[in-house]
């Protein structure tokens, strides 16, 4: 993983919600093709970190670069100018996001959900987009559900459509925000299988998850966060089997039991 220019650089990210500090001085880099898993108790700032990367939250301090491009601002000399709504929207095309609660567009079928971005936002030719969307549905194992509305799909199926929807935009980087936390236990496997396949295809991924098994098997690097800060980072072996920090040890023990 070393040597290549980082895909994403996050430096000293800080985020406050009122008097609550959600992120405090978080710095992380991710290389192309790397799968980074972020674990930690709820309220530790994992999701906020992810949401700051694609500007769903505005940072109070620090900065993010994706593929060398500063996120959210244009630098002119020593001044930073906040980007317009349209420019922020363009920057978001670099990342695909998968939400805990799926957030499929309820008034659209599975297929319509997937083609919406490429057609409406990227203005790509319909026929080409349709063919790709059908291939994506096939890849997540839902070719037969193309005309189903989200309300007619199980949680696991909805999340797989949501992954296909994000992939249809051809992002450089995929962000997963606790993608299996809202699922019934028997449906977790099918979503993880799709994500495993995606990691195998070389996609750069940041995964906020409670699935330690997935982090161990698929992750290249694991980060443990607590109270808005990175406590410990390293290989899955180091963090999950031989944590150095007491807080990491306590968390892993608590999750495994």
């Amino acid at each position: 993983m070393t040597g290549a220019a980082p895909m994403l650089v996050a430096r000293n990210l800080t985020k406050q919600f009122g008097s609550f500090t959600a992120l405090q001085d978080v710095s992380l880099d991710i290389s192309p093709g790397e799968v980074l898993c972020i674990i930690g108790p709820s309220g530790s700032g994992k999701s906020t970190f992810l949401r700051c990367l694609n500007q769903l939250e505005r940072l109070d301090g620090g900065a993010v670069w994706i593929d060398g491009e500063l996120i959210g601002y244009r630098r002119v000399g020593d001044k930073l100018h906040p980007l317009s709504d349209a420019e922020v929207a363009r920057q978001r095309l670099a990342t695909g996001m998968v939400f805990q609660r799926f957030n499929l567009f309820q008034h659209m079928t599975a297929l319509q959900n997937i083609v919406e971005g490429p057609i409406t936002v990227q203005k790509r030719p319909r026929a080409e987009v349709m063919a790709e969307a059908l291939a994506l549905l096939d890849r997540v194992g839902l070719a037969d559900k193309r005309d189903a509305y989200p309300a007619q799909l199980s949680g696991g199926q909805q999340q797989r459509v949501a992954i296909a929807r994000a992939l249809a935009m051809k992002p450089k980087l995929m962000l997963f925000d606790e993608p299996t936390s809202a699922l019934d236990p028997e449906l977790v496997g099918e979503v993880l299988a799709v994500m495993r396949g995606l990691a195998g295809s070389g996609m750069t991924m940041i995964v906020v998850t409670h699935e330690l098994g997935f982090a161990r098997e698929v992750g290249h690097r694991v980060v443990f966060m607590d109270r808005g800060a990175v406590v410990e980072a390293g290989s899955p072996q180091q963090i999950l089997s031989n944590p150095q920090q007491a807080r990491t040890r306590d968390f892993i023990t608590a999750v495994l039991n």
Binding site: L56, A89, N103, L104
Partner: peptide, 26 residues
């Protein structure tokens, strides 16, 4: 649901496009 707007933003829609394509129809 605000998740609909967030999902629309995440696929690169501007505020107005999200309103027209995602929020208003619902």
């Amino acid at each position: 649901d605000s998740g609909q707007t967030e999902a629309a933003s995440a696929i690169g829609m501007t505020r107005l496009t999200a309103l027209r394509r995602i929020v208003m129809p619902q």
